[in-house]
Amino acid sequence: MTVPGSMTTPLTQATISTEITGSREHYARHLADGGSARTHPDRAYPPYRSSLLRHPKQPLVAVRDPEMVELSGPAFGVTDITDLDHDLTRQHQGEPLGERITVTGRVLDRDGRPVRGQLVEIWQANASGRYAHQRDQHPAPLDPNFTGVGRCLTDDQGGYRFVTVKPGAYPWRNHDNAWRPAHIHFSLFGTAFTQRLVTQMYFPGDPLFPYDPILQSVTDDRARERLVAAYDHERSVPEWSLGYHWDIVLDGPAATWTEEGH
């Protein structure tokens, strides 16, 4: 790996893992020094190499204007959704291969109030770990019966539900022998644009967690655990599907007046 004079030295998992440990220790010192817990990843997270040129170096500018447009947000409704959108196993002529699962949960704001009637969008790799996307060149089979895209609106309790197959892990090129743990991408809207969230849901017990710089970019242990769904046997359907449960809490302020409209 480190042959002297070789043209390029592969970036190894050991190097990335050392950096991940370093970031975690840095965060532990921040907490020990009385710093507050951080939910979100630092946008500058060197173990995730793609972040290096794509994060701002200057601090964000605080805006606390109660009249700002961002305290309102886009609306979605029955015209934006069809009955089949939430079931990723019924979007083609045949059924996709893989382990059939349901993913259910609630979308809440940070005060614990349900986010009602809002758009939830998901996308994922197929059971083999391959995305239906021209730029995914992982030599795992595409599934003609799986696109891996779903949408729904939250109900009056903030609840959402998807039927899909469990996605596979897949390799990527952050470093040599880099593999992403299985995950489902989620996109969420609140009542305010300030609450917008794009994130990823992981599956419990995945052995790839400690190696993955994207998951590990959330350096707070408890925050990182909030990205992992729970297997819920009560939600498994006999002879049919395994049940996973994942609640989502949107950060960011919401105008109190928006409640009146819901």
Binding site: T39, R110, D111, G112, W123, D220, R226, V249
Partner: peptide, 19 residues
């Protein structure tokens, strides 16, 4: 309702194209 710890953000990644 009671205050809840927020869900962390993660990158949108490269493969959102169909979604």
């Amino acid at each position: 309702p009671a205050p809840q710890p927020p869900t962390p953000s993660q990158t949108v990644g490269p493969f959102y194209g169909y979604a």
